[in-house]
Structures are given as C-alpha cells and as structure tokens.
Amino acid sequence: MPPPPLDAAAIEVRGLRKRFGPISALGGVDLTVEPGTVCGLLGPNGAGKTTLVRILATLSLPDGGVARVAGHDVVQHPARVRGSIALTGQYASVDEVISGRDNLEMFARLYRMRGPAVRRRAEELLERFGLEDAAHRPVRTYSGGMRRRLDLAVGLVVPPGVIFLDEPTTGLDPQSRGGLWESVRELVRAGTTVLLTTQYLDEADQLADRIAVLADPEGTGGRVVAEGTPFELKSALGGESIDLTVRHAEQLGPATEILARAGGRLPTTGDDPRRVTLAVGAEAEPGTAVLAAALRELDAAGIAVEDLALRRPTLDEVFLNLMNRQREAV
C-alpha cells in the first residue's frame, strides 16, 4: 500500500536554529526534499546532522525557524508528524533482548494493528527482509546486516511517508549492502521519501537524488553549504580531469602540448614520467569533447597511448574539496 501522496514538499525546513547552552548547533538550516526522492544529508561530525533529524522526528524542539514534515509543522502538530514518519539507525533502536519477530509484533501493535494481522504483518516483513530463520532469536545475537534489515523492517510496519535512515549499510559486506540499497530503492519507488544521513559518500552517491552538505564553517551553527544532485556537486566542486599515460616517456612532451591545445589550459605532470593530467571543469569545454579532440590529435601525431581516461571525482573528493574551501574562506 503506497503512502498517501504529499501535496507539497515532503520535508521543508526554513531558517531552522537550535542552541545547546552557549553552543549553536544549527545556525539557520534551509532544506527542501521533494516527495518520493532520496536526500542525502552529508556533513562532518558536529555539523548538526543528528540535531536536525531529531527535530524533524519531533524528538527535540527547535529554537527558531520552521520545519514541516509530510506537510505538518513539527512544533505545532508533532503527533501528525509521528503518524507519517519512521526513524531508524542510531536515532532509534529496537529491543535487543527480545526476538526479531517479537519486535515486529510489538511495533505492529503500537502502530495499532490488532488480532491476526499483527502476526501476518510480522511474517511478511521477516520474509521480505530474509529474516525468517533468525526470527525467533534475540536481536543481540544478530549480525550487523540482519540488525540493519530488522531496523528497516520495523520502520516499514506501516509504510511511512517519510523515513529517516542513518548509515544503513555501514560495516556490511558488499552483498548485504547491495541488498539493502535495493530495499531502499524499492521503498522510494512505492512513494516514500528518504532522508539519508551518512558519513559514507558512496552510499549517498548510490542512493541519493539530491545531496545537501551540512557544515559549520564559521562556528555559528550548522547550515547547508552546498546542495544539488551528486552529478552537479561533482561537476561544480570536484572538477573532472583527463589522465593520459603514454607508452614511451619521451613522447610525454608532445602529448602534453596536444592536451593543452585541446583543453585550452596547461596540464600538470607528477612523479610518473609517462603520465600527465589535465583538469577539465564545467567552465571549460565539456570533458568528453576535450577527450575526443585529444584522442584524435594524439592518434594523428602517432603517439602511443597506454591509457586515456576522463576521471570524475568521487563524492569523497568533492566533500574534502568543499571542506577545504570552507576552511580557507574563514
């Protein structure tokens, strides 16, 4: 059963502020998440990610600004917000002493299910998340992957309009990781909106439609310092580059001249005597066009190319780059 459609944004945050005594945790956060999308919320430790999620989930009150989740104001209508959300990960735990099935049945009852539906719903979720065999075991005996899956399953007892996920795949093996990512995508296809907080940028890269970077560059509280699709952020903040490796070191000179002509700027060389790197960015010609031009000329000049590649930065590089810029700006 898909959650009811949302008229407006699933999450809307304007000028949100929060202080803890003398420390400003949030210094005016603005964020909009469209329904049925995944927003990756990134940021260094202490930038206010947890504070923001706790306010959005009605566990904490803001000092200023407005936050609406699923169309409901978190301060004025917290009960309505709670009727539309699910909280997982470090923000909200399951009961470790009792079994996975007992947890699902308990939460199903708290979500107002009654009678045989409780057991049926628990079975459905155990099956969907591959937990049937461990269903009767206490959760404290579960592996990391099983725990994450149960955590997600509990959040989906009644499919929420908005779900807050926290590092859902940290510490998982690649297979469990892929499986969990698929579960999240399935959820989004059914119309759920996801706010994903993570330190692991490839996780955000895999799942997020848009990414917001929360940081506190001036020490005046966290705010969103960059926002966009992963592609936009990489193009704008990371910069692409063309890496060229020639077979014979003596051909590096002419190859460098060709790259400089194609890209309209000077390439850089490093320790490797056969390798040259040209930065291509959004402001210059598109990287692919430069690459094609360079390849034609290298071929015409008879230079033996061992490797030629257009390299996009990883989100990690974007993130580091952004954090460095913030530091320099202060």
Binding site: M1, P3, P78, G83, R112, M113, R120, P160
Partner: peptide, 23 residues
C-alpha cells in the same frame, strides 16, 4: 503485501478523548 494496514497518517491529537484513552 496482503495484510490490511491501518491508515498511515492517523493523528492521535485529533481524536476524541475516549478513543485516545482506549488507544
């Protein structure tokens, strides 16, 4: 998914007092 689920966005604060007490 065949189990009938309760409405996703019911609102405890909007219910009559007696229903709230029962829940």
């Amino acid at each position: 998914m065949n189990t009938p689920l309760p409405p996703t966005a019911w609102t405890t604060s909007d219910e009559p007092p007696l229903a709230r007490l029962r829940w």
